[in-house]
Design a protein around this nucleic acid. Structure first.
Lengths: 216, 216
DNA sequence: GGAGATAAAACGGTATACCGTTTTACGAGA
DNA sequence: TCTCGTAAAACGGTATACCGTTTTATCTCC
């Protein structure tokens, strides 16, 4: 299970707020995130804002100019290509590593699928979709692999968010597609064959790309 | 080529200093890195130290406790296993992606090997060895892949450093082994076949592990 | 002598202030 | 009108100070 998002410190809550604004599109790509301005707007000092911006940079949602100014990242198609290649290699690896652990712990995946079916918006489906994949990374047992994947997650979320806003994806279809695919994966995982688990995820991601609206 | 390490800001130079102390073993695993103490010792304020510690955490050299205190990371064997699995998957991928670019740019790899041959210490050989691999990641053209690898590099360096200090590796042997292996890789790269380049690197890393002194 | 309470010291989180650099906006001259 | 220069405003880097929490060390009681 992913960590509980409990923004205890002001740095964390600032990061959460900005993350939300960026992923939701409220903050447009290329926008300057000036420390003082953000600080004043959120009612905190510059220090937590500064740290939040560093965090968001690590997540790929923010980009620093050579002179240290933070901007909302503007993803291009080639950025997406990079992300895609990495997913295509990291996730199957995770599935292979996780295979031996697929004895009892499939329950968390099943719960996720159930939640996905209950979801009421495209946004929610997307979030649960990503969580499904993150669960697999988590089950791989390789904490660094999980961290690497997480460092890509923000950008992925950003890209998907923009895609959805552009193409007005239908909730029903996206949801049905996701649930069906994930169920198939869980079924396949029951064999616990590392090679099979790996192949399964690889093909899921290949198929996912086909399903996506025009990526260009 | 890797970025020029020009510590312009105090955050950067502080990070460099601490990095050096940690990798060299001067700062023992588990040591507390208190902001105020480090700041006073290095003659800067706590702010740059704070940022340096965050940077080093991202590099895997420092670990934060639940209450926000920074400690020099203490790597275990299973940490090394995680790193190894990731190298074994990321680097061959990079080689495959880089294959099409292996027309002229092999010169940077060749220069690296030449420098390795001129090296005069195990430490220097190790540094150039890692640089060789980083060059391949760089040539893959996938900036995120390079970033992921770099986020593992610090821990790798840390591990290798401790290994060398424990086993007093002979410079000559390590050097000869490294140079020979890297030359073979460059030779193989000339075919520019993605699959071959990928296999080459995979086998190099498998062999590298055999070569390492007792990892346990 | 050992476990627990307690007070002092250490430490991190954050606000504020200052300074040098970068950006930006405006105005003069071609 | 466009370009270039210049000054003001914006901005980030860093130092310092304050506060609440966590650690640590000491003292007490069993």
């Amino acid at each position: 299970m992913p960590k509980a998002p409990s923004p205890s410190s002001r740095s964390d809550s600032t990061a959460s707020l900005l993350r939300q604004e960026i992923v939701s599109g409220e903050a447009a790509p290329g926008n300057l995130l000036a420390e003082a301005a953000v600080a004043q707007r959120l009612g905190v000092s510059r220090v937590p804002v500064r740290e939040a911006l560093f965090t968001l940079e690590r997540e790929g949602l923010v980009e620093f100019s050579a002179t240290g100014r933070a901007f909302v990242k503007d993803l291009t198609t080639s950025d997406f290509e990079e992300l895609y290649v990495l997913r295509l290699n990291l996730e199957p690896l995770a599935a292979r590593l996780a295979a031996p652990h697929f004895k009892k712990d499939l329950s968390s995946l099943e719960e996720n699928v159930a939640a996905t079916q209950r979801a009421k918006s495209v946004h929610e489906v997307t979030r649960l979709d990503l969580e499904f994949h993150e669960l697999i990374l988590h089950m791989s047992g390789n904490t660094r692999l999980l961290k690497l994947w997480r460092s890509l997650r923000g950008e992925l979320e950003l890209w998907l968010g923009r895609l959805h806003r552009q193409h007005q994806l239908q909730t029903r279809e996206t949801q049905a597609q996701t649930v069906e695919a994930h169920r198939g994966i869980i079924e396949g995982f029951k064999t616990q064959t590392p090679a099979a688990c790996e192949r399964l995820l690889r093909e899921h991601i290949l198929g996912w790309r086909e399903w996506l609206p025009i990526v260009s």
